[in-house]
């Protein structure tokens, strides 16, 4: 499935004007802090309404500035994992993961919804966490649970904001391969904000480089590494 996002908007001091596109293959968004990466993710999720542009997911139009189309977040089919994971602290892991089914299957008894969530947790090898509270999870466990919660509703698109940044090096290595295996086998298109070149290599992602609300470079790892657009890219890839 091909996707395309052209976004123009002004948010506080950030003037955003970007154009991105991709397919089932993961896409990575990199750039210095404050360049607008999280804003792009939030705009795709429906948290910010751009002033112009469009967002297309296959045949579906999620936003079109000219035709005044703007779908609310709840009907976009986006799986959003924000930085810090935002697991609901008042719900245990099982209820966090089954949360999306409340709206998707309102007539299904809650026990059955929990059963579905448990099956997914088993599949992701974290069913042992089911009765734990978010507060009691390690960074890596939180990350898996947040992913499970996003995947539970079978989204058409995954938005991951620095999914590995809060983890120590060992856990990060383990989860990187877990994440890449999951994203590659899942074939759900994804846009991942990352600060680590190893994430991009593991995911074999195509890259967009952002700076001050603009895309300054795009391409495969090899293309971007061959001609880094700025010092940030050169440092990012240790060139």
């Amino acid at each position: 499935m091909k996707w395309q996002a052209v976004l123009q908007m002004q948010l506080c001091s950030l003037s955003l004007d970007v154009s991105l596109q991709g397919d089932e293959k993961p896409t990575a968004l990199i750039g210095p802090n404050g360049s607008g990466k999280t804003t792009v993710l939030r705009a795709l999720a429906g948290a910010h309404k751009p002033s112009a542009g469009h967002i297309r997911l296959g045949e579906r139009v999620l936003f079109d500035g000219e035709q005044d189309v703007w779908l609310a977040p709840e009907i976009r089919g986006m799986g959003y994992v924000p930085q810090g994971y935002a697991l609901f602290p008042h719900l245990n892991v099982l209820d966090n993961v089954s949360f999306g089914l409340r709206a998707q299957q309102p007539n299904t008894p809650s026990n059955q919804r929990r059963q579905s969530a448990l099956s997914l947790l088993k599949k992701l090898q974290c069913d042992h966490l089911a009765s734990r509270w978010p507060k009691a999870l390690s960074g890596g466990e939180k990350q898996r649970v947040a992913l499970a919660r996003a995947l539970m509703v079978q989204p058409d698109f995954l938005l991951l904001d620095e999914p590995l940044s809060a983890l120590d090096a060992t856990v990060r290595r383990q989860l990187r391969s877990y994440l890449s295996e999951m994203l590659i086998t899942n074939t759900t298109p994804s846009l991942i904000v990352t600060q680590d070149a190893k994430d991009i290599q593991a995911l074999n992602a195509s890259i967009y480089v952002m700076q001050s609300g603009r895309i300054v470079q795009q391409g495969t790892i090899e293309e971007v590494k061959a001609e880094p657009a700025n010092d940030f890219v050169a440092e990012f890839f240790n060139i």
Partner: peptide, 17 residues
Amino acid sequence: NPDFLWVARTLGQKPAG
């Protein structure tokens, strides 16, 4: 945290939900 609310929205909840 507003992220909790945005995640809830992407998981199918309307603003009231």
